[in-house]
Computed example of a mutant assay.
Amino acid sequence: MATDADANIETETLPIDLLLIGLLGFWHLGVAQGYFEQSPAGVFLGLGAVLVAPGYALVALLFPRGSSESGGLFDNREGRISTGERLLLAVGSSVCIVPLLGLGLILGSLGATTGSYQLSIGVTTVLLTFAATIRRLQVPPDVRFSPLRWVTTVRSIAVLKPAGGVPALRILLVLGLLVSGTGIGYAAMSADRGERFTEFALVTESANGEPIASEYPSQIPLGSSRTVQVTIGNHEGQDLNYTVVVIAQRIENGSVLATARIDRFRNRVAAGDTLKRSHEMSPTLVGDDVRVSYLLYRNEAPVGANPRPENVYRRTHIWVNVTSG
């Protein structure tokens, strides 16, 4: 017949704390993908997902063993740590992990945007939680760490009595903070502030010769042309080659009935510069409300597929009536 101790061991087999940390990691992934809206509760969840979750999962992976039932503090064998030390290392490890993830995005040229940053934190938390769960379940139940035993070890949070090997852990934490601070400083000095992007627009000239984003040509006879100015502003942090493809499309009830390529040109724009190029627009499709699209590609336009608004890096367009007269 099962005893109360056996029932407690079976209950503690479920890693409740890691389950909550994993759910927090998946919530962070959902935030990165835009599935959850901002809310007051989301602010607190976000703080936990950044300042606690990744570090807690890492500490759980490194220290799967739990506390002794007698003293409330972990003994000094087999690298055990106290509950207070576990929480302290969780926060400290998160402070180290999160900036290093951002530095990795910058050095890997993956784009350190808010979405990618949140995605990397969520993925790291989920993977560490999965690995920590597997390792904890490999530890015998009688020495396995369980959050259900925290009630008997609450006083270890206030009294961080050093356990065996703790000095080495504190040294490791300090070194991690130094590495993290160095990474933040390097990122601040080497990376441009703000999001990297390319500005792409069509402008015309006003009566006094000033460029304006209005007064576009509304009617063009077939065989004639009108002049517009293409503006490409490179804010990507590096010199880039851009290809612009100009197409005309006859559209009816939202469906594209015909497409014709008008022109194609290529320019190199230095980092931080803005290219202004005049272009003679001459549509070859007759009809009302012909959409003339300017499609911008980084480097070359796709070869295997025809350039179209769905596969571009940036695009802009105007509507014109093309007459046959």
Rank of each mutant, 00 (worst) to 15 (best):
Ile212Tyr: 11
Ala207Ser: 14
Ser190Glu: 12
Glu236Trp: 06
Ala60Ile: 07
Arg268Cys: 00
Pro147Phe: 12
Gly25Arg: 04
Val246Asp: 04
Ala2Ser: 11
Ser214Asn: 11
Val143Ser: 08
Asn267Ser: 14
Glu210Lys: 12
Leu45Asn: 05
Val245Met: 06
Ile171Trp: 09
Arg268Lys: 09
Ser293Thr: 08
Phe44Thr: 13
Gly233Glu: 06
Glu12Phe: 00
Arg77Cys: 01
Glu210Leu: 14
Gly92His: 03
Pro40Gln: 08
Asn234Phe: 11
Pro162Lys: 03
Gln138Tyr: 04
Phe63Arg: 15
Leu240Cys: 03
Tyr35Val: 06
Val52Glu: 02
Ser255Glu: 15
Phe130Cys: 14
Ile16His: 09
Pro147Asn: 09
Asn241Trp: 14
Val174Ala: 15
Trp319Gly: 02
Thr11Gln: 14
Gly79Ser: 12
Asp273Ser: 13
Leu61Tyr: 13
Ala271Pro: 04
Ile318Arg: 04
Gln219Phe: 10
Phe130Ser: 14
Glu300Trp: 05
Ala5Ile: 14
Phe197Ser: 08
Glu195Thr: 11
Tyr186Gly: 03
Asn321Lys: 09
Gly34Ile: 05
Arg250Trp: 03
Gly223Thr: 10
Thr13Gly: 00
Thr114Cys: 00
Leu100Asn: 02
Phe44Arg: 06
Pro99Ser: 02
Ser278Tyr: 11
Leu73Thr: 08
Asn306Gly: 08
Tyr35Phe: 13
Tyr56Asp: 02
Leu296Asp: 05
Ile81Asp: 01
Glu310Ser: 15
Asp288Ser: 10
Arg77Gln: 12
Ala271Asn: 13
Asn234Ala: 09
Glu37Gln: 12
Ser67Val: 09
Phe200Asn: 02
Ser282Cys: 04
Thr204Tyr: 03
Gly71Met: 01
Ser218Lys: 10
Ala132Tyr: 00
Ile171Met: 12
Val126Glu: 05
Arg308Asp: 13
Leu285Pro: 02
Leu19Gln: 06
Ile247Leu: 13
Gly71Trp: 02
Leu29Glu: 08
Asp4Asn: 12
Phe197Ala: 08
Asn311Met: 02
Arg261Lys: 15
Val244Asn: 10
Pro283Phe: 01
Met281Thr: 15
Ala41Asp: 04
Leu172Val: 10
Arg261Leu: 00
Thr114Glu: 09
Asn253Ser: 15
Leu24Pro: 00
Leu51Ile: 11
Gly108Asp: 09
Val126Gly: 02
Arg77Ala: 14
Pro54Glu: 03
Ser82Phe: 01
Arg308Trp: 03
Gly165Tyr: 02
Pro162Ala: 10
Ser225Phe: 13
Ala5Asp: 13
Gly22Glu: 03
Tyr297Ser: 13
Ile121Lys: 00
Met281His: 03
Arg136Pro: 07
Leu101Met: 11
Ser324Glu: 15
Arg264Ser: 14
Ala60Gly: 06
Val31Asn: 04
Val154Asp: 00
Asp273Asn: 14
